[in-house]
């Protein structure tokens, strides 16, 4: 992609992800901890954004709020145009299920289900019919290049393959964006590169990706790099 194309894309692209002045306060009896403070971030369709920051900076809190895994104290969070404030569990679950594709650091595949069934899990929660599920799972498997491993159980796959299945699970539901949490954290360098290339590949085909990582090298490979320190966005880089 050349610069002009990207610029053009950025101008016309719609906003997939928008956090405005999000704050998250953890209260215990004695102290209040501000995990995120007036956090504002906007991600457009097709972007690949890396979020970095030292331990305790609020990375995980950002991830949990972005993934609708936790609620926030104040501010607004629009996900593909939907305001996520005041939604109930059912609505949140539905949004998570349809709009977000998760890739976790620990892969988090269900050990008792094979690759195919693992990818199918989010689709099942969506009341999708059998044949469509089948199509989507096959496509996702094809995109991560593991069609031959459909019947394998997680324990029978290498770390890199497991993470690729996890990526397939994330993309199978055509989410608004993929939320990746240290996707290469548990992998050796070769496998890490494979997974990263896969993510870039998927991004090239148009899927928005938000990746939380502590690896500056990885972050540098993305289009945009956001650094969180003390719960606030401190720096933004654009790697063009």
């Amino acid at each position: 992609m050349n610069q002009a194309q990207i610029k053009q894309q950025a101008e016309t692209a719609k906003t997939m992800f928008a956090m405005e002045n999000i704050s998250k306060v953890y209260r215990t009896e004695l102290i209040e901890t501000h995990a995120l403070r007036d956090f504002t971030l906007q991600v457009n369709e097709g972007e690949f954004v890396a979020i970095t920051g030292p331990s305790g900076s609020g990375k995980t809190t950002f991830l949990n709020i972005a993934g609708l895994l936790e609620t926030y104290s104040s501010g607004h969070y629009f996900l593909d145009g939907v305001n996520t404030r005041d939604l109930n569990d059912k609505q949140l679950s539905h949004l998570r299920n349809t709009k977000i594709g998760f890739v976790f650091q620990g892969f988090n595949l269900i050990p008792d289900l094979n690759a195919y069934d693992n990818i199918e899990v989010p689709l099942r929660y969506r009341n999708m019919n059998r044949s469509e599920r089948k199509d989507r799972v096959q496509q996702a498997l094809a995109r991560v290049g593991l069609e031959s491993r459909a019947k394998h159980f997680p324990a029978q796959l290498s770390g890199g393959q497991q993470q690729r299945i996890a990526v397939a699970r994330a993309i199978a539901g055509s989410p608004a964006f993929i939320l990746a949490d240290e996707p290469t954290g548990n992998l050796d360098s070769l496998m890490a590169r494979q997974v990263m290339e896969l993510l870039e590949n998927i991004n090239d085909q148009g899927t928005t990706i938000i990746m939380v990582t502590h690896d500056q090298d990885l972050a540098r490979r993305t289009q945009r790099h956001v650094q969180i320190i003390d719960g606030q966005v401190t720096e933004m880089f654009k790697h063009f």
Binding site: L69, K90, Y125
Partner: peptide, 16 residues
């Protein structure tokens, strides 16, 4: 617990 948490993240409602 973790596994069930993952299922929740993948879109399972409490009821499900």
């Amino acid at each position: 617990r973790k596994q069930l948490g993952v299922l929740r993240a993948l879109g399972a409602t409490r009821t499900k």
